[in-house]
Design a protein around this nucleic acid. Structure first.
Lengths: 332, 332
DNA sequence: TTCAGTAAAGTAAGCGATAACTATAGCGAT
DNA sequence: ATCGCTATAGTTATCGCTTACTTTACTGAA
């Protein structure tokens, strides 16, 4: 394609420089080149360029579940921030499977992405050690990995757990159940926060009130049906994320109980449709857009500097959003 | 990296062939190469390979809105289908903006994607003519463009409109309103189906019952509030997609009316949380996963054959899903 | 007049792979 | 012993760009 641009009678080099606004091209020549380029509808080949510059302007975004709108929103934030910087985002969906994740990361690396953003489903840090030795800039997001000291952007899960639980306590709940997430940082942190809040208020943590609700659209619903069989049943439920909490609402209503009067319910994540649910769902907002943008910002700095920086940890403060599912008018 | 593989005393070519299972390499040599490759943790450079083969194994997926779980689900289907074929998906989010879309497509092209899947927000076919002349394999999805005879996978929007409207009629509604979408194929087709169904049953189409509800989380809610001011107000509402219909439910309930007794409501798209909404939402299922997979399948065929095929149009049949929001027990 | 200095353009070498040939060896058949 | 195969391995030329130099033609100061 560039030889076509030589019908101006200049060398290939001149054209290359002109296109990149290189300083030692006269204004006149540059104009002629640009002009001809438009006429020919020519676009430089990114691949060839990448090959020699070692920059692909590709960023890998590794997510456990695109369907969860929390992550979709993050993806949007990331793309919005990176787009003006000339980066393109390759999203990979791991379906909460550590092995798939590992494989996808490998593929992204052979594609020579300039950086990675990962909300990991990994249990250990092997993959990340590899990234570190290969000096690939990367940022962990939403889910930190114990034992990996990497750049991180997200919310302190313990705070989320505490905030949600304290809120239920304030609403007068005393038998508070928790639909816990996977044993990753996220699930574990929220559980810990839940326990701490109970302890702080001298409420006994009853182990049968903590049930697992992991992955899948119905887990929250089913786990809650089990909870309702207990005697006494809980009077408050904290679901580790919104989809699970929404399932809980469904189960409780189906059992003929009222939300929030009989059982108050709160989730986490503030998915955009929370407001439209059967009972508008109280939740802990994690500012997913902000997380996405902040992460993108951090990664872009990492990618653009050569000196390896000290890993940074950026925490976004969680925010309680009270809606109908937990608001008991009289009590408090 | 490859020179490192020459400590086996073989030529670079031999290694290259061995890695690709080329036929004229002895079993023994191949094993030695693979062995060494593992030891060195070597991965072939995709970029360099692409440069000479002219294949990137990259597919661009252009979507108007990732947050809409209908598209997120499609994205998942596409990725799931393409992943085992070795293709990587680059998702781009156009936020329903034709210009952004155009720009993103350009970028994807300079990245030399092997093919494109587009749910377009475009009003005319210019961009697609360009794709055709440049012989880029592409498939239009969900939204066809009038005047562009391209490969297409989606649902016949007119059928959706008719199916939804007929259902409301069967439920006894006689004053049926429609929250219409944008003037693209999708919105227009559903509107047309709606009108046809009314005509077929001899119900007069009242123009004040058709209001626009485009983009944004609250449009359905607000448009419905306007509808409720009419005298007489509608007794049935067909929202062109689920988020809009969910907003309608909210507005109706807020006005102190009952769903479906006073006003029956139906959407389209069958988003995964439909079941958890304030009133479980009736909808027209468009099998988003199937759309995604079918599209991916079609595109992969396009990419792998040289002969330009006659454009194909694949229609997925829509399916009525009745939930509480439109089901009137007594009548029908 | 001469020479260093600068602006503008050009040359050569490769980035890491592959395609398309060419070369070599071993082997049986004539 | 010679020819021609087949099976393996190696050569060479690019792919479309950029990096790092080198060249050329002026300019103005000494």
């Amino acid at each position: 394609m560039k030889d076509i641009a030589e019908d101006l009678g200049v060398s290939l080099m001149t054209v290359s420089k002109a296109l990149r606004n290189h300083s030692d091209i006269s204004h006149k020549t540059r104009e002629r080149v640009l002009q001809r380029m438009r006429e020919l509808n020519y676009q430089p080949d990114w691949i060839a360029r990448s090959m020699v510059t070692r920059k692909t302007y590709l960023v890998g975004l590794v997510l456990p579940d695109l369907m969860h709108s929390f992550f979709a929103e993050i993806a949007k934030g990331v793309a919005r921030k990176l787009d003006p910087l000339g980066y393109q985002v390759v999203i990979s969906n791991t379906e909460e499977d550590g092995e798939v994740e590992q494989r996808h990361i490998d593929v992204l690396l052979t594609r020579k992405v300039d950086g990675l953003i990962i909300a990991s489903a990994q249990r250990d840090g092997k993959v990340f050690d590899m990234l570190a030795t290969r000096k690939i800039p990367y940022v962990l997001m939403d889910r930190s990995i114990t034992g990996v000291d990497a750049n991180f952007v997200g919310v302190k899960d313990e705070e989320i757990g505490a905030l949600a639980t304290e809120h239920l306590i304030k609403q007068g709940c005393r038998r508070i159940a928790h639909l816990r997430g996977p044993a990753l940082a996220t699930g574990a942190g929220r559980l810990k926060g839940y326990r701490k809040a109970l302890a702080k208020h001298g409420i006994e943590a009853q182990s049968s009130y903590v049930v697992s609700a992991q992955y899948g659209d119905n887990t929250g619903y089913e786990a809650t049906r089990e909870l309702l069989k207990l005697n006494p049943p809980p009077d408050g439920i904290f679901g580790y994320n919104d989809p699970v909490a929404a399932g809980a609402v469904k189960a409780v209503l189906e059992a003929g109980l009222r939300v929030p009067e009989d059982i108050a319910i709160i989730g986490a994540g503030n998915v955009h449709y929370s407001d439209l649910l059967r009972v508008p769902l109280s939740t802990i907002d994690q500012s997913s857009t902000v997380i996405g943008e902040t992460t993108a910002q951090l990664l872009s700095e990492l990618m653009e500097t050569k000196i390896p920086l000290e890993p940074r940890h950026i925490f976004i403060p969680p925010r309680l959003v009270v809606r109908e599912s937990s608001e008991r008018k009289k009590q408090g």
